[in-house]
Write a protein that binds this DNA or RNA. Structure first.
Lengths: 96, 96
DNA sequence: TAAACAAGTTTACATTATAAACCAAATTTA
DNA sequence: TAAATTTGGTTTATAATGTAAACTTGTTTA
């Protein structure tokens, strides 16, 4: 009845990040920070976890002279995200 | 863009419990345990938290000679649940 | 060149979730 | 009727998590 929710996605900030990345080609650290309102520290940690799980890829480069970190969702990440959404629906609709 | 998710509801087990309670008049401990597949300890703790927040009421009595704990969602709990669902939708639909 | 800023990372702490151990009463079994 | 099992939980201990604060490295500005 209640499917297990992927703990990696069941986190406010990581879910927000994945939700953003699911809709764009790529997004850099600063953009994600602005959109989510997260602190740099928290965002950095959560991005690491998503990357470690293979849900996103992280590319470090430079934009002019300033460092820039670009994040992109992977196929596995997209699939996990969709699965999470489906699972959640089971929870939210149980009351019907 | 991303509303804060009520941390009390953003928990797999508590969400399952609330989801069940949102759909029935009341449910007892054993029923909740069966439906969620949770361990007694975990369920006991999470029920306490929901009760402490005023999201549910817990009534202890007896069914014959055996103890029985009945849980019921409160109006505040129902409102919080609905609010959580709405907030979640913002997350899940951000990619559109 | 000193101060402020940008873009992160590391670390430390507090909160949470969860399972394991425990308990009391009732019921079943030998 | 004594022992074992089941029911219906609670308490406690531990591991995992989330988060903020402090720090780092390099750049821009006054």
């Amino acid at each position: 009845m209640f499917p297990k929710l992927d703990p990696l996605l069941h986190s406010e900030l990581r879910l927000a990040v994945m939700s953003i990345l699911a809709g764009v080609d790529e997004a850099d650290f600063t953009y994600l920070k602005k959109q989510t309102g997260a602190t740099s520290g928290n965002l950095s940690v959560q991005i690491d976890k998503l990357a470690a799980a293979g849900y996103i890829t992280v590319e470090k480069g430079f934009k002019g002279k300033m460092p820039r970190t670009a994040c992109k969702i992977t196929p596995a990440g997209l699939e996990a995200f969709r699965g999470y959404v489906e699972a959640l629906k089971e929870y939210l609709s149980a009351s019907n």
